[in-house]
């Protein structure tokens, strides 16, 4: 049962809308306050990446249910320049985070599952899942 809702990311305000959407769904699913905040932060990071690097894309939130186990999936898609070296982008300390722990490795740590597909010139698709503990 996948119910998906999306927010198009074009302006900085759209990041807020994506956060709000994610938080609402997380709350609905019964995530605790800390996990709600983590999911929102992950969404915020992914949406910011789209806003800054790809300029245009969307963030979708999906409710998931795996044999009675509830979860939330974030899908961030853009048609930007793509990531040249994914291994490098997934390395701590790389990217613009500058010790803030942000960036893709930070998102990966906040979530339970993380997938990235990117091709140069075509864009990037990142999927991340968090399950209720």
């Amino acid at each position: 049962m996948d119910i998906q809702s999306c927010v198009n990311i074009q302006t900085e305000w759209d990041i807020v809308a994506a956060r709000q959407l994610g938080r609402n769904v997380a709350k609905e699913l019964g995530f605790g306050v800390v996990d709600q905040a983590r999911i929102t932060t992950a969404i915020s990071e992914l949406a910011r990446n789209i806003f800054i690097y790809a300029h245009k894309g969307r963030v979708c939130i999906e409710k998931m249910n795996d044999k009675g186990h509830a979860g939330l999936r974030i899908i961030a898609v853009d048609s930007g320049p793509g990531i040249n070296d994914i291994r490098l982008a997934m390395e701590d300390g790389y990217s613009t985070s500058g010790g803030l722990g942000a960036g893709l490795p930070g998102v990966k740590r906040l979530m339970d599952e993380f997938q990235i597909v990117s091709s140069q010139g075509k864009g990037t698709e990142i999927t991340a899942v968090k399950w209720i503990r």
Partner: peptide
């Protein structure tokens, strides 16, 4: 967030 990166 920063703390986790530091740990890693």
């Amino acid at each position: 967030f920063a703390y986790r990166e530091h740990q890693s």
